[in-house]
């Protein structure tokens, strides 16, 4: 038995935008945004590997290396590390909140993350100003040039991260996320955690070792 087509309404019968519709997905079995951010983070791993590797070579090639505890304020930077770890925790808390459709919780935790991230930048700027006022400029010696290079490039990453979190927060306030749509939050969060992870290494290498 055959069924004759008696009427054809493009608004109903035609595929949307006239794109072919397949019953399979030709992309990787993972969210494209997440795939892309991890490729990007892979390049960032190589970037910081080059930076840290160069630092190790220069330090190993230096006849003397000052004890960082004699030159840097470890206490205030330890506090700054605490601030950054807290911001990572609040980002995850925000993500978990939106997955439960707790939008008020998302707004609270995400806003707090931005404040903590900005606080980290503020403390680092304060540290820089204090050091430069005492003549500790990048051209003093290799210790200071590597210090400013590594913490400065990380600081730029933190600033970008804060701006990204803030841009996402605008979408949060507009109700752009829900328990069914939170990938945008996760991508910003992944970048932020990466920045946190790099700082854990830099803090140990530069301030404690």
């Amino acid at each position: 038995m055959t069924t004759a087509i008696t009427s054809y309404d493009p608004a109903v019968d035609a595929p949307e935008h006239h794109h072919p519709v397949y019953d399979y997905d030709s992309g990787p079995p993972v969210d494209r945004g997440k795939f892309a951010i991890w490729v990007f983070l892979g390049t960032e791993i190589m970037f910081f590997t080059g930076l840290i590797g160069t630092y190790i070579v220069l330090r190993a090639g230096s006849p003397e290396w000052p004890n960082p505890a004699h030159r840097l304020a470890v206490g205030i930077t330890a506090f700054n590390t605490f601030v950054l770890i807290c911001s990572s925790a609040t980002v995850v808390a925000g993500l978990f909140a939106v997955q439960k459709d707790d939008l008020a919780g998302l707004r609270k935790w995400w806003g707090l993350s931005i404040l903590l991230g900005a606080g980290f930048v503020g403390i680092q700027v304060y540290e820089y100003v204090h050091l430069i006022q005492h003549g500790m400029t990048p051209n003093q010696d290799l210790f200071w040039s590597t210090f400013y290079l590594m913490t400065g490039l990380h600081g730029i990453h933190v600033v970008v991260g804060v701006l990204w979190l803030a841009a996402v927060y605008v979408q949060v306030l507009r109700g752009g996320f829900s328990s069914k749509n939170w990938v945008g939050l996760e991508l910003a969060g992944l970048y932020w955690h990466f920045v946190d992870l790099v700082w854990v290494l830099l803090f140990t290498l530069i301030y404690l070792m």
Partner: peptide, 12 residues
């Protein structure tokens, strides 16, 4: 260990 926990849990 700090990096491990951030990588495995925070970065999921």
């Amino acid at each position: 260990f700090k990096g491990y926990y951030i990588y495995q849990y925070f970065m999921h």
